[in-house]
Design a protein around this nucleic acid. Sequence first.
DNA 1: ATTATAAATATAACCGGTTACATCATTGTT
DNA 2: AACAATGATGTAACCGGTTATATTTATAAT
Lengths: 334, 334
Amino acid sequence: MATIRDVAKQAGVSIATVSRVINNKGKIKQETETTVREAIKKLNYIPNKVAQGLSNQRSNAVAFILPSISNPFFPEMARAVEDVAQQHGYHVFICNTDDKREKVLNYLDNLATHYVDGIILNSHIIKEADLEKLRNNNISIVMMDRVLEHEETTAFAVKNRAGGRKATEHLLDVGCKRVAHISGVTDIPTAQDRMWGYLDVVGTLPWYDTSYISRSDFTVEGGYQAAKELFMRHPEVDGIFAGNDLMAIGALRAAHEWGKAIPNELAIVGFDGIDMSALTTPPMTTVQQPIYELGELAMKELLGHMNDEAYEAKTVNLDVELIIRETTMRTQQN
Amino acid sequence: MATIRDVAKQAGVSIATVSRVINNKGKIKQETETTVREAIKKLNYIPNKVAQGLSNQRSNAVAFILPSISNPFFPEMARAVEDVAQQHGYHVFICNTDDKREKVLNYLDNLATHYVDGIILNSHIIKEADLEKLRNNNISIVMMDRVLEHEETTAFAVKNRAGGRKATEHLLDVGCKRVAHISGVTDIPTAQDRMWGYLDVVGTLPWYDTSYISRSDFTVEGGYQAAKELFMRHPEVDGIFAGNDLMAIGALRAAHEWGKAIPNELAIVGFDGIDMSALTTPPMTTVQQPIYELGELAMKELLGHMNDEAYEAKTVNLDVELIIRETTMRTQQN
DNA sequence: ATTATAAATATAACCGGTTACATCATTGTT
DNA sequence: AACAATGATGTAACCGGTTATATTTATAAT
């Protein structure tokens, strides 16, 4: 592979001149530039990213750290991040962590020595202190779904609690008498917030007790199991608010198996609004997050952060919207 | 961030010694090693990946190039690739190309200058010649779903044509009289092969003509549209073999809207066996590819390739399996 | 024509590692 | 005691870029 020295030799100039041509820096005689460009073309020269990285201490790359590539929510968001990044000449490293603290920290260290310029971090297990090293290395960070205590970090999230309320209220509105909740991993704040939203609505109703909450894990399989348990524990349940769409899909599956008619015998609401939610049978009512917008905003914010000295951290909480589909469109009320 | 020079100073040795300690190379006095390790720990030193990359001309990273992160098939495979890679200390760059030739070539160039050690390439638009540069740079390649003419490249694929036959035969077996096909982008070999499989079975039947094939694009939306067109053109269609699961899901959606009972009025078979296929309502009969295994084998093969001088290219064609679920479990035959 | 000033290019140091080769310290041989 | 062989460590070149500074060349001013 041709190096800058090869090009310099070919064009009969110094490597500095070649570098200037490549980067449009400094003054170059028109004629020289032409010669150099020809040499570049002739040798099929592409600047070595690694060498550039070492020299510049930056890579023109950012990382998108996600807990689970199997939950379409994150790939959907990653798409938006990629789109924006690409428009600005950045590459995106997608890093899958299974939300294991060790893996996340490992990535964080490695990414720093890769000179990534910024990181969009989807992880609840990371503490403010873990980010210090990155900051010292001048790596910008945007947190998703996680507002850190010390507000030195920009964070994007949605109004999970309000979303949980909307979902639960809606189930009551369509006539559900006993609304259960399948929660995500309960030490994840988003899962907690959605649960709190649920509790805001049903927590004080006479029939409610904690056995109406089934703790699960944000996966389809988990939602399926959780729903089955609920059916056994509370056959009277006629509405379920699931903490995310995957679990809602699992619950739907369980309901079909159990022979419960959707939505008349059992209404279900999910959360996230992944593409898939519109494609279940019947289509799923869900609390739609602005997924693409989240990714887009996060990446734009990161760009601003990376290129602006005087950047100021902010916390953004986007609204969510209840999308009513057929899993709650009852034709009769029991 | 601490550098190797900082460590050397701290430990009172030369940088060469530190390097030797890090890489377990050459003879080091036990005592010296201890001192160095203490210095490393004290300074929280992590070798700079970029500098290592430049020096070693390798990165301990591989790339997984996929056409669409929105088709869960690829993330599912990526998972397997990541699992294996991680076990062997490799990082995986996931590169999304939308299967645009320009984007793919761009990635290929860039990855070379990133010193990636290997590439798993999911792309049908790449020709043998495009890979030459990579080979010159000693970058190993494994192709997926694409057997190149000159067999210098290792390629993994599944028996798409046989799969297409299985799917179509199954539809006839359950009593379908008019079986249509929704094909993927027809200049993609996998899509073609599946179509050929379909034609092997119905191509010579008296009722068949090409209008029973609807060309689509491997997306849910595309499958949805294609199915609708089919319903208009051929209301008598009672079986659809879709070229992948996403399109099958779209077709299912269309069928529901059209009021066609699944599976009795219309049976559907997909292809791929993505997780989602088991979760539709009713669950989708599909031709299961060994997705995880594919990713696992590909990555293992790549590892072998990267670490073995005398590596020999091979072509592997894995079997597919028809998974019968409810979209074809008819209770009555029309 | 001579000098000051600006423009264009080259030289060399640097980014942070790896490693061939040189050097110095030990230990073993005769 | 003298020398060879081996072990342990250091020096310096190199990977392929960028860029501050030095140097050369062209242009303007006197």
